[in-house]
Amino acid sequence: MLTLDGCRIVQGDFALTADFAVNAGARVSIIGPSGAGKSTLLAAIAGFLPLAGGRILWTGKDIAVQPPGARPLSIIFQDNNLFPHLTAFQNVALGLKPSLRLAESEAAQVRDALARTGLAGLEDRKPSELSGGQQSRVALARVLLRGRPILLMDEPFAALGPALRAEMLDLVKTLAAETGATLLMVSHDPADAKRLGGQTVVVAEGRAEPPVETGLLFADPPQVLRDYLGD
């Protein structure tokens, strides 16, 4: 279970509080108006922003004291998920060993991860030689390889068209189901949340609300969500 225990994030005169728990293996969308602090919340969980108060617990252990790379999570950013001067293989292999000195068994793992995301044969391409969808798949292959129990996604696949985005979300869902990963995804598009299913956290007015079943939430949206959706 991932617990945000009285978390408080302060940036200048902006403040955000979050106090809820997410079950292991859950799929959670985070939606809300822009500027409400969705990405800020994710950055704090990932370790890029310090907490002004509170704890972040995973299986009872406070992970807020750990540096970003040591936390039990992987993160996919909106863009810049790949190093442009490294090949797809190298970008994925970084998830196993930043030194890139791999044993043959480890190289096989990298190739396997690439194959599972549909990238077999594209190992030696640089990101610039891959399509947007393929670039996202490289990032997902690395997530698979790292095998961390939590996956954070900050408006992932924002650069992709609607059909491709839906395809990628389905792939993420499949991979998360296979690995049992806990998924937290920030999105500004309610369609993404509906496609992902699971639960949804609404971030608005300086608060991240506890997760609610996504279907129930959209069937009877609270006022802040209604304002955001515009209906």
Binding site: P67, P68, G69, A70, S74, I75, F77, N81, G95, P98
Partner: peptide, 9 residues
Amino acid sequence: RLAASLGFS
């Protein structure tokens, strides 16, 4: 940021 998320030393 990406390097940090991957735990680069």
